[in-house]
Every structure is written in structure tokens, then in C-alpha cells.
Nucleic acid binder design. Structure first.
Lengths: 151, 151
DNA sequence: CGCAACTCAGTTGTACACAACTAAGTTGTC
DNA sequence: GACAACTTAGTTGTGTACAACTGAGTTGCG
């Protein structure tokens, strides 16, 4: 006896509900971040920097799983907005250090309320949120491991 | 006693793990769909059409939660690739009917194996897959309901 | 030292997403 | 029948994602 093969129906697929959920959440953030004049990926970079004021582009790339093709223009926009500085490291001229300006640090005040609003919109208990978060991380790790092993 | 406010740490947030998971899965599809010369959103459109050969652009938009700004150029590319036809409906000239060409129908044969590979990469049991799928759908509905109620 | 291999950020090109808008067609109401 | 309100697809502009590539800088090794 073999396992029933997965169907090709749109609604049956986890990947589609994942894709829909991700876009719905990003859409919610769009409204919430309107006031801060940030996009969602820009907000993620700011989160990383609020946590630790100085990061190399490479470190941000690892933290967010984004490459320089995405980060370089995004960081340039944050710089133009006056939220971050970009300086070449003096002891390794290949690296660029991203650091928060005062304005960038200040913006955190406007962001503190956002996670709670998102949690409310998701209509899940803290326990459910946490279970889902770890299930998602596990899924990401499995998929990325599979991808790495099937170059 | 009040609930502890959600933190602003990147790794604590469900939204970020959701965003990462979605991108990881899309990345896996990129490899799997390389052979069919489809992108992931194009594949979703093809899934919808393999299920039901003829759809209005509007119906596709509802099924995939995508607007014409995304669908119109995407469908044009599928047309150029010879996979779909686009005709104005004769009884309502505003609507455009999308239908599969023979080549578009044939492509399904190359796609049938994909869901099983994805399921394998996700390393989840069929039960877990299904639980996660419904949890994701619920999340999407909650978030969209919240968005709708907070215009 | 010399220089090939590697690292890092940035650029280019393609394809989404989505807001805001346009243009053409349809419907409801008087 | 006239016409405002609405529907539908498409266009424009901005900002991701990501592959492929470039160029400057660093490191390891003979």
C-alpha cells in the first residue's frame, strides 16, 4: 500500500495557504507601517538594528536571509530617509557597516505598539503564536536543508 | 495583571518566520519549476486552470487573491509562452476569459510529481501538513477580517 | 613576494505585489 | 433614452526578491 499522492488542487496545498498568509500579514503591516514610512522588509532591517545598533550588510543578510541584490538598494533608501548610516570598515574595505542615526533610533518609539496589534489581528493565543512560530521555523529549516542537499 | 507585550525582536515574531518560510518554499519551487519554465505565481495560475480550463481574469484574481496589476502582465507572459489564450467575452466585453491551449494542458503531465517532492522537502506527515494548512487559512482569514474592519 | 581563490557590496535584468489611475463597457434609475 | 454609478482589465510607478555578474579588497599558499 502506497501513500496517496498529493493533489494538484490549489486549495489543497500548504504552499498556497502559506503564500496567502504571508501576503495577508505583509498587507496588514503595510497599513501599520504607513505612519513610519517604512515597507515591511525595511521594518525587518530596522528591527535587526534596534536590537543591535551596528551591523555589517553581510550580517543583516544572514539575519534576514536576503542577499545584497535586495539589501543594497533597500539600505540606500533607508539612508536617504535619514534612518541609517553606511560606512566602509577601515580594517576591511570590502565590508560596509550599517548603523542607526538618532532619527533611526527614535523611530523605535513609534514601532513598539505594532507587534501587539499584529498579534490581535491574528486572533491567536500567545501559546498558539509560539507554536506556529516554531512550526514555521522548522518548516523553513527542512525546506532549506532539502534545497541544499539537492543542488 | 496585564499580558506581556510582544517584543520587537526579529526572531520572536511569527510574521518573520512566516515570511522566511514562504520565501524558502517559493525558492524550492523555483528549482522544481525550472524545467516547466514557470515562476511560482505562474504555476498557481496554471493549477487553477488545470482544475477548471476556463476562467475569467476576475475569477483568477479571487482564487489567488491577486489584482489585475499582478495578473495582467503575468497572463500576458503565459500567453506569449503559448500556454493560455485570452479572449474577450462576447456577452460582456469588459471580461477576459483565460483558457488553456493544448500545450498548456500538456504541461500538467510535467507537474504531477511536484506536490509530493514539496511534501517530502517539508518533512511533515500528511496530518501535520493538513493541520498546518488549515491553521494558515485561519490565520489569513483572521488577518484579512481585521484589515477589512480597520479601513 | 606573486597571484589565484575567495569575500563582500553593489549593479543589472526579470518578475512579482500592490496602490493609484485610466479606459472601456454595463447597469440601474428616472 | 440619458446618464451617473459601477465593474472589469489594463497601465504606471515604487519596492521588493533573486539570479547572474562586476569590481574592489583580502587571504592563503607555493
Amino acid at each position: 500500500m502506497t501513500t496517496k499522492p498529493a493533489s494538484l488542487r490549489l486549495d489543497d496545498q500548504l504552499c498556497f495557504s502559506l503564500y496567502s498568509a504571508s501576503r495577508a500579514v505583509t498587507g496588514l503591516y503595510r497599513t501599520l507601517l504607513d505612519d513610519l514610512e517604512l515597507t515591511y522588509p525595511q521594518y525587518l532591517v530596522m528591527l535587526a538594528l534596534w536590537d543591535d545598533d551596528e551591523r555589517l550588510v553581510k550580517e543583516l543578510g544572514i539575519a534576514l536571509n536576503l542577499d545584497s541584490g535586495t539589501l543594497s538598494p533597500l539600505l540606500k533608501r533607508l539612508e536617504t530617509a535619514g534612518l541609517v548610516r553606511r560606512d566602509r570598515r577601515e580594517d576591511d574595505e570590502r565590508s560596509v557597516r550599517i548603523s542607526l542615526t538618532e532619527q533611526g533610533k527614535d523611530l523605535k518609539k513609534k514601532a513598539v505598539g505594532i507587534p501587539d496589534i499584529v498579534a490581535e489581528a491574528m486572533a491567536l493565543s500567545p501559546t498558539q503564536l509560539d507554536e506556529m512560530r516554531s512550526a514555521m521555523s522548522l518548516l523553513t529549516d527542512s525546506v532549506n536543508a532539502y534545497r541544499a542537499s539537492h543542488t
